[in-house]
Design a protein around this nucleic acid. Structure first.
Length: 399
RNA sequence: CAGAGUGUAGCUCAACUUGGUAGAGCGCCAGCUUUGGGAGCUGGAUAUAUCGGUUCAAAUCCGAUUACUCUGACCA
Protein backbone atom coordinates (compact mmCIF):
# COMPACT_ATOMS: atom_id res chain seq x y z
CA UNK A 1 0.00 0.00 0.00
CA UNK A 2 1.26 3.44 -0.93
CA UNK A 3 0.73 5.86 1.92
CA UNK A 4 0.26 8.68 -0.56
CA UNK A 5 -2.88 6.92 -1.79
CA UNK A 6 -4.48 6.09 1.53
CA UNK A 7 -8.05 7.20 2.14
CA UNK A 8 -7.43 8.14 5.77
CA UNK A 9 -4.32 9.45 7.46
CA UNK A 10 -2.74 10.00 10.84
CA UNK A 11 -4.19 13.06 12.56
CA UNK A 12 -1.93 15.56 14.24
CA UNK A 13 -4.11 15.95 17.30
CA UNK A 14 -6.06 13.80 19.71
CA UNK A 15 -9.82 13.76 19.21
CA UNK A 16 -11.51 15.99 21.76
CA UNK A 17 -14.62 13.87 22.19
CA UNK A 18 -12.99 10.63 23.25
CA UNK A 19 -11.42 9.73 26.53
CA UNK A 20 -11.01 5.99 26.05
CA UNK A 21 -7.49 5.04 25.05
CA UNK A 22 -8.64 2.63 22.37
CA UNK A 23 -10.73 5.25 20.58
CA UNK A 24 -8.16 8.03 21.02
CA UNK A 25 -5.33 6.03 19.50
CA UNK A 26 -7.38 4.32 16.80
CA UNK A 27 -8.91 7.59 15.65
CA UNK A 28 -5.67 9.53 15.73
CA UNK A 29 -3.75 6.81 13.89
CA UNK A 30 -6.40 6.63 11.17
CA UNK A 31 -7.96 3.23 11.97
CA UNK A 32 -11.32 4.46 13.19
CA UNK A 33 -13.86 7.22 12.79
CA UNK A 34 -16.84 7.94 15.02
CA UNK A 35 -20.20 8.05 13.28
CA UNK A 36 -22.38 8.37 16.40
CA UNK A 37 -22.12 7.59 20.09
CA UNK A 38 -21.25 3.91 20.26
CA UNK A 39 -21.22 3.61 16.47
CA UNK A 40 -17.92 3.62 14.65
CA UNK A 41 -16.59 3.27 11.14
CA UNK A 42 -13.57 1.05 10.72
CA UNK A 43 -11.32 2.84 8.27
CA UNK A 44 -9.16 0.77 5.90
CA UNK A 45 -6.33 0.28 8.39
CA UNK A 46 -8.75 -0.80 11.09
CA UNK A 47 -10.48 -3.14 8.69
CA UNK A 48 -7.15 -4.81 7.91
CA UNK A 49 -6.55 -5.49 11.61
CA UNK A 50 -10.09 -6.77 12.03
CA UNK A 51 -9.63 -9.15 9.09
CA UNK A 52 -6.58 -10.62 10.78
CA UNK A 53 -8.36 -11.08 14.09
CA UNK A 54 -11.27 -12.72 12.29
CA UNK A 55 -8.98 -14.99 10.29
CA UNK A 56 -7.45 -16.29 13.50
CA UNK A 57 -10.88 -16.82 15.03
CA UNK A 58 -12.07 -18.68 11.92
CA UNK A 59 -9.06 -20.97 11.95
CA UNK A 60 -9.64 -21.93 15.54
CA UNK A 61 -13.39 -22.34 15.14
CA UNK A 62 -12.95 -24.49 12.05
CA UNK A 63 -10.34 -26.37 14.04
CA UNK A 64 -12.94 -27.52 16.57
CA UNK A 65 -15.23 -28.72 13.82
CA UNK A 66 -17.57 -25.76 13.60
CA UNK A 67 -19.02 -24.53 10.31
CA UNK A 68 -19.47 -20.87 9.49
CA UNK A 69 -22.89 -19.55 8.57
CA UNK A 70 -24.62 -16.19 8.59
CA UNK A 71 -27.83 -15.35 10.38
CA UNK A 72 -29.98 -12.26 9.85
CA UNK A 73 -29.73 -9.04 11.82
CA UNK A 74 -33.42 -8.35 11.16
CA UNK A 75 -35.32 -10.83 13.30
CA UNK A 76 -39.12 -11.15 13.54
CA UNK A 77 -40.75 -10.59 16.90
CA UNK A 78 -42.23 -14.10 17.08
CA UNK A 79 -38.76 -15.63 17.42
CA UNK A 80 -37.98 -13.49 20.46
CA UNK A 81 -41.37 -14.15 22.00
CA UNK A 82 -40.73 -17.89 22.09
CA UNK A 83 -37.94 -17.37 24.58
CA UNK A 84 -39.48 -14.41 26.37
CA UNK A 85 -36.70 -12.09 25.27
CA UNK A 86 -38.71 -9.56 23.28
CA UNK A 87 -39.17 -7.30 26.28
CA UNK A 88 -35.51 -6.83 27.12
CA UNK A 89 -34.30 -3.23 27.17
CA UNK A 90 -31.37 -3.65 24.75
CA UNK A 91 -33.44 -4.58 21.69
CA UNK A 92 -33.78 -2.08 18.89
CA UNK A 93 -37.31 -2.58 17.69
CA UNK A 94 -38.64 -1.57 14.31
CA UNK A 95 -41.72 -2.00 12.22
CA UNK A 96 -41.80 -3.31 8.67
CA UNK A 97 -43.87 -2.04 5.77
CA UNK A 98 -46.42 -4.72 6.58
CA UNK A 99 -46.73 -3.56 10.16
CA UNK A 100 -44.83 -6.60 11.35
CA UNK A 101 -42.41 -5.98 14.19
CA UNK A 102 -38.74 -6.85 14.16
CA UNK A 103 -35.87 -6.71 16.57
CA UNK A 104 -32.30 -6.12 15.47
CA UNK A 105 -30.21 -9.10 16.47
CA UNK A 106 -28.39 -8.61 19.74
CA UNK A 107 -27.71 -12.34 20.16
CA UNK A 108 -28.84 -15.35 18.15
CA UNK A 109 -29.73 -18.28 20.40
CA UNK A 110 -33.38 -18.19 19.39
CA UNK A 111 -32.68 -17.98 15.68
CA UNK A 112 -30.20 -20.82 15.61
CA UNK A 113 -32.27 -22.97 17.95
CA UNK A 114 -35.18 -22.80 15.54
CA UNK A 115 -32.97 -23.74 12.61
CA UNK A 116 -31.35 -26.47 14.66
CA UNK A 117 -34.73 -28.00 15.39
CA UNK A 118 -35.36 -28.17 11.67
CA UNK A 119 -32.15 -29.95 10.70
CA UNK A 120 -31.00 -31.80 13.80
CA UNK A 121 -34.10 -33.95 14.09
CA UNK A 122 -32.51 -37.15 15.33
CA UNK A 123 -29.66 -38.19 17.53
CA UNK A 124 -27.63 -39.30 14.52
CA UNK A 125 -27.33 -35.61 13.51
CA UNK A 126 -25.69 -34.67 16.80
CA UNK A 127 -23.36 -33.16 17.82
CA UNK A 128 -23.08 -30.15 15.52
CA UNK A 129 -21.56 -26.70 15.82
CA UNK A 130 -21.99 -23.53 13.75
CA UNK A 131 -20.73 -20.01 14.13
CA UNK A 132 -20.91 -16.62 12.51
CA UNK A 133 -19.04 -13.35 12.65
CA UNK A 134 -21.72 -10.75 12.44
CA UNK A 135 -22.85 -7.31 13.48
CA UNK A 136 -24.86 -7.15 16.67
CA UNK A 137 -27.04 -4.27 17.84
CA UNK A 138 -27.68 -3.43 21.47
CA UNK A 139 -29.51 -0.37 22.72
CA UNK A 140 -27.03 0.31 25.49
CA UNK A 141 -28.33 2.94 27.88
CA UNK A 142 -25.03 4.70 27.53
CA UNK A 143 -22.28 4.19 25.00
CA UNK A 144 -18.86 4.37 26.57
CA UNK A 145 -15.27 3.24 26.45
CA UNK A 146 -14.82 3.76 22.71
CA UNK A 147 -15.27 0.53 20.80
CA UNK A 148 -15.30 -1.53 23.98
CA UNK A 149 -19.00 -0.93 24.51
CA UNK A 150 -20.72 0.15 21.35
CA UNK A 151 -24.32 0.00 20.29
CA UNK A 152 -23.31 -1.73 17.09
CA UNK A 153 -20.39 -4.13 17.20
CA UNK A 154 -19.06 -7.30 15.72
CA UNK A 155 -19.50 -10.62 17.42
CA UNK A 156 -18.33 -14.11 16.67
CA UNK A 157 -20.99 -16.37 18.09
CA UNK A 158 -20.68 -20.14 18.09
CA UNK A 159 -23.51 -22.49 18.98
CA UNK A 160 -23.15 -26.19 19.65
CA UNK A 161 -25.85 -28.86 19.82
CA UNK A 162 -25.57 -32.11 21.73
CA UNK A 163 -27.55 -35.24 22.47
CA UNK A 164 -26.39 -35.42 26.07
CA UNK A 165 -25.38 -32.99 28.73
CA UNK A 166 -22.08 -34.83 29.15
CA UNK A 167 -21.27 -34.34 25.49
CA UNK A 168 -22.12 -30.65 25.75
CA UNK A 169 -19.82 -30.30 28.74
CA UNK A 170 -16.98 -32.09 26.97
CA UNK A 171 -17.24 -29.91 23.89
CA UNK A 172 -17.43 -26.81 26.08
CA UNK A 173 -13.96 -27.66 27.34
CA UNK A 174 -12.71 -28.14 23.79
CA UNK A 175 -13.98 -24.71 22.80
CA UNK A 176 -12.51 -23.16 25.94
CA UNK A 177 -9.10 -24.39 24.81
CA UNK A 178 -9.68 -22.97 21.32
CA UNK A 179 -10.59 -19.64 22.89
CA UNK A 180 -7.34 -19.63 24.84
CA UNK A 181 -5.47 -20.14 21.58
CA UNK A 182 -7.38 -17.32 19.87
CA UNK A 183 -6.49 -14.80 22.55
CA UNK A 184 -2.89 -15.94 22.77
CA UNK A 185 -2.52 -15.67 19.01
CA UNK A 186 -3.89 -12.11 18.82
CA UNK A 187 -1.43 -11.11 21.53
CA UNK A 188 -3.73 -10.92 24.54
CA UNK A 189 -3.17 -12.49 27.94
CA UNK A 190 -6.68 -13.63 28.75
CA UNK A 191 -7.61 -15.16 32.10
CA UNK A 192 -10.35 -17.76 32.23
CA UNK A 193 -12.70 -16.49 34.85
CA UNK A 194 -15.75 -18.05 36.46
CA UNK A 195 -18.87 -15.91 36.25
CA UNK A 196 -22.61 -16.03 36.66
CA UNK A 197 -24.89 -17.26 33.94
CA UNK A 198 -27.23 -14.29 34.13
CA UNK A 199 -30.49 -14.91 32.34
CA UNK A 200 -29.08 -17.92 30.53
CA UNK A 201 -28.20 -20.57 33.05
CA UNK A 202 -27.79 -21.30 36.73
CA UNK A 203 -24.52 -22.99 35.91
CA UNK A 204 -21.27 -21.04 36.11
CA UNK A 205 -20.12 -19.61 32.83
CA UNK A 206 -16.61 -18.65 31.86
CA UNK A 207 -15.40 -15.25 30.82
CA UNK A 208 -12.10 -14.54 29.13
CA UNK A 209 -10.78 -11.46 30.87
CA UNK A 210 -7.85 -9.24 29.96
CA UNK A 211 -6.53 -7.22 32.85
CA UNK A 212 -6.61 -3.51 31.97
CA UNK A 213 -7.21 -0.24 33.82
CA UNK A 214 -10.05 0.61 31.47
CA UNK A 215 -11.87 -2.65 32.14
CA UNK A 216 -15.49 -2.50 33.32
CA UNK A 217 -15.39 -5.82 35.14
CA UNK A 218 -13.84 -6.51 38.51
CA UNK A 219 -12.22 -9.89 38.86
CA UNK A 220 -10.51 -11.72 41.70
CA UNK A 221 -7.29 -13.39 40.66
CA UNK A 222 -4.77 -15.51 42.56
CA UNK A 223 -1.50 -13.59 42.67
CA UNK A 224 0.46 -16.85 42.75
CA UNK A 225 -0.78 -17.54 39.24
CA UNK A 226 -2.46 -20.86 40.03
CA UNK A 227 -5.22 -19.98 37.59
CA UNK A 228 -7.91 -19.10 40.09
CA UNK A 229 -10.07 -16.34 38.69
CA UNK A 230 -13.63 -15.32 39.51
CA UNK A 231 -15.79 -12.40 38.56
CA UNK A 232 -16.50 -10.27 41.63
CA UNK A 233 -20.25 -10.80 41.11
CA UNK A 234 -19.99 -14.44 42.19
CA UNK A 235 -16.80 -14.48 44.23
CA UNK A 236 -17.10 -16.00 47.68
CA UNK A 237 -13.63 -14.83 48.68
CA UNK A 238 -12.52 -11.25 49.16
CA UNK A 239 -9.50 -9.29 48.03
CA UNK A 240 -6.47 -10.02 50.20
CA UNK A 241 -7.72 -13.42 51.33
CA UNK A 242 -5.91 -16.66 50.73
CA UNK A 243 -6.56 -18.35 47.40
CA UNK A 244 -9.16 -21.10 47.91
CA UNK A 245 -7.66 -23.12 45.09
CA UNK A 246 -3.92 -23.29 45.78
CA UNK A 247 -3.78 -21.89 49.32
CA UNK A 248 -0.48 -20.23 48.42
CA UNK A 249 -1.24 -16.85 46.91
CA UNK A 250 -3.48 -14.03 47.99
CA UNK A 251 -6.50 -12.90 46.03
CA UNK A 252 -6.07 -9.65 44.11
CA UNK A 253 -8.86 -7.50 42.74
CA UNK A 254 -8.27 -6.29 39.18
CA UNK A 255 -10.13 -4.40 36.51
CA UNK A 256 -10.53 -6.39 33.34
CA UNK A 257 -12.05 -6.30 29.88
CA UNK A 258 -14.27 -9.25 28.97
CA UNK A 259 -13.19 -10.31 25.49
CA UNK A 260 -15.06 -13.59 25.36
CA UNK A 261 -17.55 -15.71 27.22
CA UNK A 262 -18.96 -19.20 27.01
CA UNK A 263 -22.25 -20.56 28.29
CA UNK A 264 -23.64 -24.03 28.90
CA UNK A 265 -27.26 -23.39 27.99
CA UNK A 266 -28.61 -26.89 28.35
CA UNK A 267 -32.23 -26.99 27.20
CA UNK A 268 -32.98 -23.32 27.82
CA UNK A 269 -33.70 -22.68 24.12
CA UNK A 270 -34.86 -26.07 22.91
CA UNK A 271 -36.15 -29.28 24.43
CA UNK A 272 -34.69 -31.25 21.57
CA UNK A 273 -30.99 -30.96 22.36
CA UNK A 274 -28.45 -29.54 24.77
CA UNK A 275 -27.00 -26.27 23.57
CA UNK A 276 -24.02 -24.17 24.45
CA UNK A 277 -23.08 -20.74 23.12
CA UNK A 278 -19.71 -19.08 22.88
CA UNK A 279 -18.95 -15.43 22.09
CA UNK A 280 -15.97 -13.34 21.14
CA UNK A 281 -16.21 -9.67 20.21
CA UNK A 282 -13.68 -9.07 17.42
CA UNK A 283 -14.09 -5.30 17.54
CA UNK A 284 -13.75 -5.39 21.31
CA UNK A 285 -10.65 -7.54 20.90
CA UNK A 286 -9.25 -4.90 18.55
CA UNK A 287 -9.87 -2.16 21.09
CA UNK A 288 -8.47 -4.25 23.92
CA UNK A 289 -5.23 -4.84 22.04
CA UNK A 290 -4.80 -1.08 21.77
CA UNK A 291 -5.63 -0.63 25.45
CA UNK A 292 -2.84 -2.97 26.50
CA UNK A 293 -0.35 -2.39 23.69
CA UNK A 294 0.56 1.24 23.09
CA UNK A 295 3.07 3.84 24.23
CA UNK A 296 3.23 7.62 24.09
CA UNK A 297 4.15 7.52 20.42
CA UNK A 298 1.28 5.36 19.31
CA UNK A 299 -0.05 1.85 18.90
CA UNK A 300 2.24 -1.17 19.17
CA UNK A 301 0.55 -3.95 17.17
CA UNK A 302 1.34 -7.59 17.88
CA UNK A 303 2.70 -9.12 14.67
CA UNK A 304 -0.24 -11.46 14.17
CA UNK A 305 -2.77 -8.65 13.82
CA UNK A 306 -0.71 -5.68 12.58
CA UNK A 307 -2.22 -3.92 9.55
CA UNK A 308 1.14 -4.35 7.81
CA UNK A 309 4.16 -6.32 8.92
CA UNK A 310 6.48 -3.52 7.87
CA UNK A 311 6.37 0.22 7.27
CA UNK A 312 8.87 1.31 4.64
CA UNK A 313 9.97 4.94 4.82
CA UNK A 314 11.95 6.80 2.22
CA UNK A 315 13.78 9.92 3.40
CA UNK A 316 15.97 12.39 1.58
CA UNK A 317 15.67 14.20 -1.68
CA UNK A 318 17.98 12.30 -3.98
CA UNK A 319 16.14 10.73 -6.88
CA UNK A 320 18.35 7.66 -6.59
CA UNK A 321 17.20 7.12 -3.02
CA UNK A 322 13.56 7.25 -4.04
CA UNK A 323 14.23 4.75 -6.81
CA UNK A 324 15.91 2.38 -4.38
CA UNK A 325 12.98 2.53 -2.00
CA UNK A 326 10.47 2.03 -4.79
CA UNK A 327 12.41 -0.96 -6.12
CA UNK A 328 12.54 -2.52 -2.67
CA UNK A 329 8.84 -1.93 -2.14
CA UNK A 330 7.97 -3.59 -5.44
CA UNK A 331 10.24 -6.50 -4.69
CA UNK A 332 8.59 -7.08 -1.31
CA UNK A 333 5.12 -6.86 -2.82
CA UNK A 334 6.02 -9.39 -5.52
CA UNK A 335 7.22 -11.70 -2.76
CA UNK A 336 3.77 -11.36 -1.18
CA UNK A 337 4.76 -9.38 1.87
CA UNK A 338 2.56 -6.81 3.56
CA UNK A 339 4.23 -3.44 3.40
CA UNK A 340 3.02 0.09 3.89
CA UNK A 341 5.26 2.38 1.83
CA UNK A 342 5.52 6.00 2.95
CA UNK A 343 6.23 7.56 -0.44
CA UNK A 344 4.82 10.95 0.54
CA UNK A 345 6.61 14.26 0.09
CA UNK A 346 6.80 14.89 3.81
CA UNK A 347 9.71 15.86 6.05
CA UNK A 348 11.43 12.98 7.82
CA UNK A 349 9.98 13.94 11.19
CA UNK A 350 6.42 13.60 9.99
CA UNK A 351 7.14 10.15 8.60
CA UNK A 352 8.71 8.93 11.82
CA UNK A 353 5.89 10.26 13.95
CA UNK A 354 3.23 8.76 11.72
CA UNK A 355 5.00 5.39 11.59
CA UNK A 356 5.16 5.23 15.38
CA UNK A 357 1.50 6.19 15.63
CA UNK A 358 0.36 3.52 13.16
CA UNK A 359 2.50 0.98 14.96
CA UNK A 360 3.56 -1.63 12.41
CA UNK A 361 5.94 -4.19 13.97
CA UNK A 362 8.92 -3.20 11.81
CA UNK A 363 10.08 0.11 10.39
CA UNK A 364 12.38 0.00 7.40
CA UNK A 365 14.16 3.18 6.35
CA UNK A 366 15.95 3.98 3.14
CA UNK A 367 17.59 7.38 2.94
CA UNK A 368 20.47 9.23 1.35
CA UNK A 369 22.66 8.20 4.27
CA UNK A 370 21.87 4.48 4.23
CA UNK A 371 24.36 2.74 1.90
CA UNK A 372 23.03 1.16 -1.25
CA UNK A 373 21.96 -2.44 -0.82
CA UNK A 374 21.36 -1.89 2.86
CA UNK A 375 18.42 -0.69 4.91
CA UNK A 376 17.83 0.49 8.43
CA UNK A 377 15.41 -1.58 10.46
CA UNK A 378 13.80 -0.91 13.80
CA UNK A 379 11.31 -2.96 15.74
CA UNK A 380 8.37 -0.94 17.03
CA UNK A 381 8.79 -0.33 20.73
CA UNK A 382 12.57 -0.77 20.71
CA UNK A 383 14.78 2.27 20.97
CA UNK A 384 17.56 1.27 18.61
CA UNK A 385 17.67 0.73 14.91
CA UNK A 386 20.33 -1.06 12.93
CA UNK A 387 21.57 -1.08 9.36
CA UNK A 388 21.58 -4.45 7.63
CA UNK A 389 21.68 -5.82 4.09
CA UNK A 390 18.40 -6.10 2.20
CA UNK A 391 18.31 -9.88 2.24
CA UNK A 392 19.08 -9.98 5.94
CA UNK A 393 16.23 -7.54 6.52
CA UNK A 394 13.79 -9.72 4.56
CA UNK A 395 14.83 -12.73 6.59
CA UNK A 396 14.39 -10.92 9.88
CA UNK A 397 11.22 -9.02 9.15
CA UNK A 398 9.30 -11.45 6.98
CA UNK A 399 11.13 -14.70 7.62
C1' C B 1 -32.95 7.35 32.78
C1' A B 2 -30.46 10.94 36.66
C1' G B 3 -26.36 14.34 37.41
C1' A B 4 -22.28 17.28 35.34
C1' G B 5 -19.59 19.32 31.20
C1' U B 6 -19.00 20.69 26.16
C1' G B 7 -20.72 22.35 21.03
C1' U B 8 -17.02 28.44 16.93
C1' A B 9 -13.07 26.42 9.86
C1' G B 10 -11.37 19.50 8.08
C1' C B 11 -8.74 19.13 13.35
C1' U B 12 -7.34 21.55 18.16
C1' C B 13 -8.54 26.05 20.33
C1' A B 14 -9.39 31.87 21.17
C1' A B 15 -13.18 35.71 21.34
C1' C B 16 -18.46 34.91 25.68
C1' U B 17 -17.50 37.33 32.14
C1' U B 18 -18.66 43.28 30.32
C1' G B 19 -23.46 42.35 23.27
C1' G B 20 -20.73 46.26 18.49
C1' U B 21 -16.50 43.96 11.44
C1' A B 22 -15.20 36.16 14.46
C1' G B 23 -8.99 35.22 15.26
C1' A B 24 -4.82 31.61 15.67
C1' G B 25 -2.05 26.99 15.02
C1' C B 26 -2.23 22.65 12.23
C1' G B 27 -4.47 20.72 7.78
C1' C B 28 -6.15 22.08 2.60
C1' C B 29 -5.09 24.97 -2.45
C1' A B 30 -1.06 27.85 -5.50
C1' G B 31 4.16 28.97 -5.54
C1' C B 32 9.19 28.93 -3.63
C1' U B 33 12.35 26.61 -0.28
C1' U B 34 13.42 22.31 2.80
C1' U B 35 14.35 16.60 3.88
C1' G B 36 16.82 11.86 10.13
C1' G B 37 11.98 13.13 14.79
C1' G B 38 5.29 16.81 13.72
C1' A B 39 10.29 22.54 8.78
C1' G B 40 10.24 27.92 6.66
C1' C B 41 8.35 32.09 3.56
C1' U B 42 4.41 34.41 0.35
C1' G B 43 -0.58 34.35 -1.27
C1' G B 44 -5.60 31.94 -0.98
C1' A B 45 -10.41 29.21 0.41
C1' U B 46 -13.26 27.56 4.61
C1' A B 47 -16.76 28.38 10.68
C1' U B 48 -20.52 30.56 15.39
C1' A B 49 -25.15 22.88 16.39
C1' U B 50 -30.76 23.88 15.56
C1' C B 51 -35.18 26.76 16.60
C1' G B 52 -37.15 30.82 19.10
C1' G B 53 -36.81 35.26 22.44
C1' U B 54 -34.55 40.04 24.30
C1' U B 55 -31.97 44.18 21.67
C1' C B 56 -30.74 49.45 17.15
C1' A B 57 -27.23 45.26 17.24
C1' A B 58 -26.29 38.30 19.58
C1' A B 59 -20.80 33.56 18.97
C1' U B 60 -21.69 36.44 23.51
C1' C B 61 -27.77 37.37 27.32
C1' C B 62 -32.57 34.16 28.01
C1' G B 63 -35.57 29.65 26.68
C1' A B 64 -36.25 25.14 24.20
C1' U B 65 -34.25 21.35 21.24
C1' U B 66 -30.26 18.42 19.65
C1' A B 67 -25.41 16.13 19.54
C1' C B 68 -21.01 14.43 21.97
C1' U B 69 -18.13 13.32 26.59
C1' C B 70 -17.79 11.94 31.72
C1' U B 71 -20.07 9.78 36.55
C1' G B 72 -24.02 6.69 38.12
C1' A B 73 -28.08 3.24 36.86
C1' C B 74 -28.16 -0.59 32.93
C1' C B 75 -24.85 -4.37 30.54
C1' A B 76 -27.83 -11.18 27.34
Amino acid sequence: MLQSRQFARVLDQWPKDEEAINARYLIRAGFLSKTAAGVYTLLPLGQRVLHKINAIIREEMNGVGAEELSMPALIPKRIWEQSGRWEVPVVYKLTGADGEEYGLGWTHEEVIAEIGEKYLVAEKFLPRAVYQIQTKFRKEARAKSGILRGREFLMKDLYSFHATEADMRAYYEVVAEAYKRVFARVGLQALVCEASGGDFTKDYTHEFQVVAESGEDLIYVCEAGCGFCQNKEIAKVGAGEQCPQCSKGKIEEKKAIEVGNIFRLGKRFSEKFFMASYGIGPTRVLGTIVEVSHDEQGIVWPEAVAPFQAHLLVLGKEEKTRERAKDLYEKLIVQGHEVLFDDREEPAGVKFVDADMIGCPYRIVISDRVPEGEVEIKKRGRAKSEVVGEEEMIKRVFG
